[in-house]
């Protein structure tokens, strides 16, 4: 009988992780810091995601919003939008969740070395970009100009405000945050995040752009980056589709010929440009 080859069990079966800290970021956004119960810490690349399981309720794909290196546990930032994310958002500290992962491609940080980096985040899209920003700042000397452009709905929807302030204060980072809607008491920018791209100085010939946010925001940001002279091979987007298995077997996350779970979620625009604006693909 031939050798029987198996997928590692931990890709199919969750590992118990303990909630070591729960942070209420916004009205409907929560960050869970998780530690494996007795297990080993798995390396996670910025931009990868995990499948988090709420006991008896179900599983959801959640971006890793901070890697081990930056503090206690592995952070997952969750928006309370469905049954599973609601249950996860309300996990008590000390409770356990199941975790499978990490899955998917991350941001191409290695390829970005020696180049300018333009990070464009919209809303909760900042979550999977935060580990990338932190990784870049930890090895700041390896990169050229670092530009971080962040858009939110309104001032009260700003995610990770303390970190944004820390990044803004660094002389070696150009950071602009903007909101779509605001009253006059807001002192920052008002306007959609693509408008920031036009106002920012970076080398379009020698940069990499990482974009994450709602799909419309990513499409318009990609347009603005193209307009600024950045080639589609240098623009990377993190896509979202329905996911169940996360290993390319359930077929649900197909985006044209691509599986978002294993070929993505981070894709170069060059690869997905032909289908990005096709409706209902």
């Amino acid at each position: 009988m031939p050798d029987v080859r198996f997928a590692p069990a931990d890709l199919l079966v969750p590992t118990p992780y303990r909630v070591v800290e729960r942070v209420r970021e916004l009205d409907d956004v929560t960050t869970l810091r998780l530690e494996p119960r007795g297990g080993e810490r798995t390396r996670v690349n910025p931009g990868q995601f995990n499948m988090l399981y709420a006991f008896g309720i179900g599983e959801a794909a959640i971006s890793v919003s901070a890697a081990w290196e930056t503090g206690r546990g592995l952070s997952h930032t969750i928006r309370d939008v469905g049954m599973v994310s609601h249950a996860l958002s309300h996990m008590e500290e000390g409770a356990e969740v199941g975790l499978r992962g990490p899955f998917g491609s991350g941001w191409p940080l290695d390829r970005a070395e020696g180049r300018d980096i333009v990070i464009v985040a919209g809303g909760l899209g900042l979550a999977p970009l935060r580990p990338a920003i932190e990784a870049v700042l930890a090895r700041r000397e390896r990169y050229g100009r670092v530009t971080v452009l962040i858009g939110f709905r309104s001032p009260k929807d700003i995610l990770f405000p303390r970190q944004i302030r820390d990044w803004r204060e660094r002389p070696d980072v150009e950071l602009h945050a903007t909101v779509d809607h605001s009253a006059a008491d807001w002192r920052g920018h008002v306007g959609v995040v693509p408008t920031l791209i036009q106002r920012t100085a970076f080398d379009p010939e020698n940069c990499l752009a990482f974009v994450c946010g709602p799909e419309i925001m990513m499409r318009f940001s990609a347009q603005a980056l193209l307009g600024a002279g950045v080639s589609p091979a240098r623009i990377h987007l993190s896509m979202e589709r329905n996911m169940k298995c996360a290993i390319g077997h359930c077929g649900r996350c197909q985006f044209g010929p691509h599986f978002v779970c294993k070929d993505g979620p981070v894709f170069p625009l060059e690869l997905i440009a032909p289908i990005l604006s096709v409706r209902e693909i």
Binding site: V13, P14, T15, P16, F55, G98
Partner: peptide, 17 residues
């Protein structure tokens, strides 16, 4: 069935393939 799971008195989770 892919796996079954149980929760102990201390709320610890166990998974069986």
């Amino acid at each position: 069935t892919v796996w079954s799971a149980s929760r102990d008195a201390g709320d610890g989770l166990g998974f069986d393939l």
